[in-house]
Write a protein that binds this DNA or RNA. Structure first.
Lengths: 225, 225
DNA sequence: ATTTTTTATTAAGTCTGTGTTAACCAGAAA
DNA sequence: TTTCTGGTTAACACAGACTTAATAAAAAAT
C-alpha cells in the first residue's frame, strides 16, 4: 500500500491565510504546496500533480474560476480534487464554481478546524491513485514510460489509444461502458461521437495484432488475453 | 443503458423542506426516499440502502448526529455518503458532525441550486456501488464482467437476457410480476408487449439448457435451480 | 366438455449498435 | 510554408438484438 502523503496545493494572494492553512494541514500530515496567484497555481499544479487544489476566487493573474476551468480541461487533472475557499458567498458564484467542476465550495471566514475537516472528508472518498505498470502475460503497459510491449516487440500507440488500452487492461475481464470510457479517457465535458471509441479500439486491435478486446454489444468493451 | 439511479434518503421534520429538496433532486434524476424523524430514517435506510443520506440535526425521536453514528456503526453503511443539512451552524456542532463520519455539512438556509450542486459534487467522487456477483451452485453471474457461466461452460447472453436473468437470480425463489420485470429491465417509460418477456425467458432457458425459470401463471416468473 | 385466459413457440421484420473506410481538421514537425 | 501525425466525424454495410404477430399449447374458468 502506498503511504506517500497527500499533496495539497493552496492558491491565495493573502500570505497570512496561506500560512495558517499550511500549518494546520501539515499538522494533519498533508504535504502543502502554495501559490500566490492564478498563473503560479497552474504552474505548480503541473509540476507537483497535487491531490487537492484549494483555490481562492479573487487572485491576481487568473482568478480561481479560471484556474479551475483550465485544470479541469486537462485530462491529467480530471481526478484532482478542487475546493474553492473564498469570501464570495453569493449563490451565483457558488453555482458557477460547482459547474466548473469543483468538489466543494467553502465560504470565508471558516475556522481552521472546519476547513481541515472538510479536506479530510473530501479525501475520505478518494482512494490514492496508483499508476503502476500492468503486466499480463507477455503484455506490458508502462504508463510512466508511455510504453507498450507485446510478445517481445514494442508497440507504438497514440495517446488516446494508450489511455484507452490502459483503462481496459487495468481491470481485465471487466466490461467498461461506453460512457465510462468517454469520461475516463476523454473527460466529462468533452463531447465526442460514439464512433470515436470504435475507431480507437480498432487501431489498438490492429496494432496489437491479437483480438484481446471483446465487444459486448449494447454494453461496452472488455479486455482479455 | 445507464446503471440504476442513485438513491437519496432525506430526513427532516419539516415537510416543506422535504418537498422542495425531493422535487429538485428528482429533477436531477435521483431517486428520493424521505423520513420525518430519526427512527424512521434508520428504518428506511436499512430498507432501501441509499447512496446518500441527508440529515437534519434537530429531529424528533433521534437527532441527526445520533442517526449518523448509528449508521456509521453498521458495516453496511460504511460507504454510504452522509450530509448534514441543518440550521445549526456553530463550529463545535460542525466539527462534531464531521467527526461522526459525515461527508459534508451544509448550513441552512441554502439555495436549492447550491444544495443540488453539493449533492452532485459528492457523487462525482464515488463510483457507483458495484453490483456483486451472484453464485448459485454452478451458476455464476458476474454483472461487472457481463458474464454467465453454468456448469463450467460459459454462456453468452444478450443484454436484455442478461439483465432479466440477473434480476430473477438476484432473489431465487421469489416471484417477479411481469410489471416488475418490465419496470426493472425495460424501464418505466418503455412500452413493450407481454410477449417480449416470454421470448426472452425462452432464450435464457434455451441457452442455459436447464429449465430453472418457473412460470407462475397469471403472476410472473421465478428463478430456482 | 367447452370456452376463455394465459403462456410457449416460431418466424419474420425492424431497428439499433458496431466495424470499417475515407475524409477532414488541428497541431507538431520538418 | 508544407508535411506528417493523431484525433474526430461522416457515411454506409452488416450482424444480431429486440420486438411483434401469428399460431399452438396449456391451464383455468365456466
Amino acid at each position: 500500500m502506498d503511504t506517500r502523503p497527500r499533496k495539497v496545493l493552496i492558491a491565495d494572494d493573502e500570505p497570512d491565510i496561506i500560512e495558517i492553512l499550511k500549518y494546520n494541514l501539515e499538522k494533519e500530515g498533508y504535504q502543502v504546496i502554495t501559490a500566490k496567484n492564478g498563473d503560479e497555481a497552474l504552474d505548480r499544479a503541473k509540476q507537483v500533480q497535487p491531490d487537492l487544489v484549494v483555490l481562492d476566487m479573487m487572485m491576481p493573474k487568473k482568478n480561481g474560476m479560471e484556474v479551475c476551468e483550465l485544470l479541469r480541461a486537462q485530462p491529467a487533472f480530471k481526478d484532482t480534487l478542487i475546493m474553492f475557499l473564498t469570501a464570495l458567498s453569493d449563490e451565483a458564484t457558488q453555482l458557477k464554481g460547482f459547474s466548473t467542476g469543483a468538489d466543494d465550495y467553502v465560504s470565508k471566514p471558516v475556522s481552521t478546524g472546519v476547513f481541515v475537516s472538510k479536506v479530510n472528508a473530501l479525501f475520505r472518498r478518494v482512494k490514492k491513485p496508483a499508476n503502476h505498470i500492468i503486466t499480463l502475460d507477455s503484455l506490458v503497459i508502462d504508463p510512466e514510460k508511455f510504453l507498450v510491449s507485446f510478445e517481445g516487440r514494442e508497440i507504438i500507440l497514440a495517446k488516446k489509444e494508450f489511455e484507452l488500452l490502459y483503462l481496459l487492461a487495468s481491470k481485465p475481464g471487466r466490461v467498461f461502458l461506453r460512457n465510462e470510457i468517454l469520461s475516463q479517457v476523454w473527460g466529462n465535458d468533452v463531447i465526442v461521437g460514439d464512433r470515436t471509441i470504435d475507431v480507437h479500439i480498432r487501431k489498438i486491435r490492429q496494432k496489437l495484432g491479437v483480438d484481446c478486446i471483446t465487444t459486448v454489444k449494447g454494453v461496452g468493451y472488455k479486455f482479455e488475453l
